[in-house]
Design a protein around this nucleic acid. Structure first.
Length: 262
DNA sequence: ATGCCCAAATGCTTTGGA
């Protein structure tokens, strides 16, 4: 079971890249973020033509998440609980039937939080608290869970080419990193870090030649519950996608779990 | 110290991104 997360930075602007990548990489389940589309305008026909079921949680102009899956959805839930006033489309959860039982996959787009010291940073930390509460609740089910998405958190110095330039940024604040670490303390495993200690990035800014200088950061993560981590076979970052024409500023990150559709 | 670049809608400039 190949599961990927990709902040696509506008699904309508990126549909050709998305179709090419789906054909190349053949993922079973794909978590997309920043689709920047309302549900009605999501290019679902092109994706369904490749054999995927499509569930979206979009909004006008920005944010928006989706899950594409070769497996039928048993359940779909949108929105992270804990704040009814939060109208940002940043969370969608799907449940699938597999040889390892019910598999729960979340596509999340965690708030950026910049600038620090504003209500945007408070919103980020509040969102992370809600995510921790959700994760704690779901862990009690003892199911394989993949909590995948753009976390907008640089977990460790090795996860940035130049960590020093991020010290005043919301992505690298002690509070952001601590809140991310809470998921590990709960029992979640960082899929990429479980297989390698090397410096890997998932985002390179469009500006200032960041890609050419490999000035990247690793902020897209696949966090695995114990029951999912037990089935982890491989994990990787599909860096080559950043070199394509008209790329997203993020690339897909992928885990492979030893389970199959039933 | 600031902006570089990009997508979408607010639409030929602004907003949000990171």
């Amino acid at each position: 079971m190949k599961i990927a997360t990709w902040n696509i930075n506008g699904v309508k602007a990126r549909i050709d890249n998305l179709v090419t990548w789906l054909k190349d990489s053949q993922p079973d389940i794909v978590c997309l973020q920043e689709i920047k589309s309302v549900d009605e305008n999501f290019p679902r026909l092109e994706i369904e033509a490749l054999g995927y079921h499509v569930e979206t949680h979009g909004q006008k102009g920005f944010n928006g998440v989706a899950i594409l899956s070769k497996l039928r959805f048993d359940e779909v839930t949108c929105r992270l609980p804990g704040n009814d006033g939060d109208d940002h489309a940043r969370f969608i959860e799907g449940v699938f039937s597999t040889s390892a039982g019910a598999l729960r996959v979340v596509s999340l787009y965690l708030p950026n939080g910049n600038p620090v010291g504003t209500e945007k940073f408070t919103y980020k930390l509040g969102w992370m608290e809600r995510l921790e509460a959700w994760a704690k609740d779901r862990l009690a089910l003892e199911e394989p869970i993949v909590l995948a998405g753009d976390y907008n958190v640089i977990p460790q110095p090795i996860d940035a080419k130049n960590p020093d330039v991020w010290v005043n940024d919301a992505l690298y604040q002690p509070e952001s990193r601590s809140a991310f670490r809470q998921l590990s303390w709960l029992g979640f495993t960082d899929g990429i870090r479980a297989v390698t200690d090397e410096a890997l990035y998932t985002f390179w800014d469009y500006q200032a030649g960041a890609w050419q200088k490999n000035n990247g950061i690793r902020i897209d993560h696949l966090m695995l519950s114990p029951e999912a981590a037990r089935h982890l076979q491989a994990a990787s970052v599909e860096k080559h996608v950043r070199a394509w024409e008209k790329p997203s500023d993020h690339v897909p990150a992928v885990v492979e779990l030893a389970m199959s559709a039933v």
